[in-house]
């Protein structure tokens, strides 16, 4: 047996052994990949997914018609197989909902879906999301568009660092999209985060606007207080998800 075949078989046996607890659809996806690549994915998939990343992935990937499985890696990575998409996100940033919302622009780039789904869902939060998510390539038109629409407001809302970063892209390359307006709720959510409570609506109801929450969290900056605020924001997103499903079930039952 030549070395190449011997190595391939050793990798396949290792993958088979390590992936026994994974779902059948994930194992089927791994079987479609070259052995060395599948082995890397197995290593990432063995760890449980990060709660904030899973929550944000659920919110971000709703517009896309495919099944996915997230994995905590070191960088953004994407593989499409016949059964599902494997998506790796940077685990060290996974506690931060703003950084993890970059799953949406990342998916938009990978699928060739264009920027419209990300612009519609993230709106003014798109700038801070790509900045903190660490996505750096292929952004010129959309970052230019964000800067032209929201640069001034962002600079007044604690996002000076994002504006400065976006200015390097230049507004001349700005494309045209239907940007939603700057959400009024962002300031209220930011006050609640800074006060140390989970952002909420009237009388204990959940937040209504996840993108406003992301703007509020991004406005807190990158200091030590960001992590505490990010945990409160995660809880707010969880509340929003549960509330949406709860209301949908009640509506179905009439």
């Amino acid at each position: 047996m030549d070395y190449g075949r011997w190595r391939e078989e050793a990798y396949r046996a290792w993958i088979e052994e390590r992936s026994q607890l994974l779902a059948p659809s994930v194992r089927a996806a791994l079987a479609e990949l070259p052995a060395a690549e599948a082995a890397e994915w197995v290593t990432a998939l063995e760890r449980p997914g990060e709660p904030a990343a899973n929550l944000m992935a659920g919110w971000c990937l709703t517009p896309f018609p495919f099944r996915w499985r997230g994995a905590s890696g070191l960088d953004w990575k994407w593989v499409k197989t016949s059964s599902l998409v494997l998506l790796a996100y940077p685990g060290p940033l996974s506690w931060d909902p703003v950084a993890m919302a970059a799953i949406l622009p990342f998916a938009a780039m990978q699928t060739g879906a264009g920027w419209s789904p990300a612009v519609a869902r993230l709106g003014p939060a798109l700038g801070p999301v790509v900045y903190y998510g660490g996505i750096r390539q292929g952004l010129e038109p959309v970052v230019g568009g964000w800067l032209r629409h929201f640069g001034r407001q962002a600079a007044r809302s604690g996002l000076e660092i994002v504006v400065e970063w976006a200015e390097a892209f230049g507004v001349l390359s700005a494309g045209e999209w239907a940007w939603p307006p700057w959400p009024e709720a962002a300031e209220r959510y930011r006050s609640q985060l800074e006060f140390g409570v989970v952002p909420h609506g009237s009388r204990g109801s959940s937040i209504r606007d996840v993108s406003a929450l992301l703007l509020a969290l991004a406005g807190i900056g990158a200091g030590a207080e960001r992590k505490a605020a990010a945990l409160l924001a995660q809880k707010a997103v969880l509340g929003w998800v549960v509330t949406q499903r709860w209301n949908a079930t009640e509506a179905e039952e009439g």
């Binding site: 204990g204 509340g239 709860w246």
Partner: peptide, 9 residues
């Protein structure tokens, strides 16, 4: 008094 999320009144 904050109790959030309240799913139902």
């Amino acid at each position: 008094l904050v109790v959030t999320p309240l799913l139902s009144a």
